Simulated scan of single mutants.
Amino acid sequence: MICYRLRCRTGHEFEGWYRDSATFAQLQAGGLLSCPECGNADVQQALMAPAIARQSRTAQAETVAEKPAGAVLPDQMLAALQKIRQAVEAGCDNMGSRFAEEALRIHHKEAPERGIYGQASEEDRAMLAEEGVTTLTIPWVRRADG
C-alpha cells in the first residue's frame, strides 16, 4: 500500500491509500477520486515529506491517537467508496462470477472493449495478471441510497 497526500482544486488536503502508483493513476484518470470535504473531483498529488526515522512503539501509538488536520474520517471514506461503487455500476457491465472469463475475452479482442466488474478468485486474478490483464480490487460497500 502507498499513501499519497492529495489536494483538491479548492485547496483541501487529505490522504489516500492505494495499492500502487498505477492504481492511483487509473482512479485519477477515470475521475473516481474526489475530495472528502467538498466532493471536487479535480484531485492532484500534494507535496509530501518522506518518512525517514523510525519511531519507537510508544511514539507510534501516540501518533496514531492524534488526528492530523485534514485526515479522512470513516464516514468520509465510506462516502468516497459509495461514490466509487455508484460510478462503477453506472459505467460498467456486471459480469458476476463470469468476470475473469469476460475480462480475458476482452483482452483477446473476442468481446467488445468496455468496463466490467464482478467477482474473481485469487486464482482468477493471478491468471489474469499472467495474461497481462490489469484489474483493480475495490472494497464493495453498501449503496448510499440503501
Rank of each mutant, 00 (worst) to 15 (best):
A80N: 10
Q60S: 10
C3A: 10
G115I: 11
L81H: 04
L32M: 15
L104Q: 12
T134H: 07
Q86D: 14
G11Q: 06
R57D: 15
L136W: 00
S34H: 09
Q55A: 13
A59K: 13
I106D: 04
G146K: 05
C8P: 01
L47C: 06
A61Y: 08
L73K: 12
G132M: 05
G31M: 11
K67H: 10
L104K: 11
L78I: 10
A46H: 03
R143I: 01
R105E: 14
A144S: 08
L6H: 00
R54T: 14
M48Y: 09
G31N: 09
H108K: 15
Q119H: 13
A65I: 05
P50S: 10
T137F: 00
G96N: 06
F24G: 01
A46E: 03
R57P: 15
A59G: 07
L32Q: 11
M1T: 02
A65L: 09
A49C: 11
A80R: 06
E131D: 07
R7L: 04
A71H: 11
Y18G: 00
R114W: 11
A61F: 10
V72E: 04
T135R: 00
E123R: 00
Q82L: 03
I116E: 09
S34P: 02
R114D: 13
K67W: 13
Q55F: 10
S56V: 07
G70N: 06
G30I: 09
V141G: 00
R54N: 10
A129G: 02
G146D: 09
E123V: 00
G31H: 09
G11E: 07
A65C: 05
A61S: 13
A144P: 01
A129I: 03
G132H: 05
P36R: 00
A126Y: 00
G91N: 15
R105F: 11
A69P: 06
Q28W: 07
A111Q: 09
R57F: 11
L104E: 13
L6E: 00
R7Y: 02
L81F: 04
G96M: 08
V88A: 08
R5T: 05
A25S: 14
Q76V: 09
R114V: 12
L27Q: 04
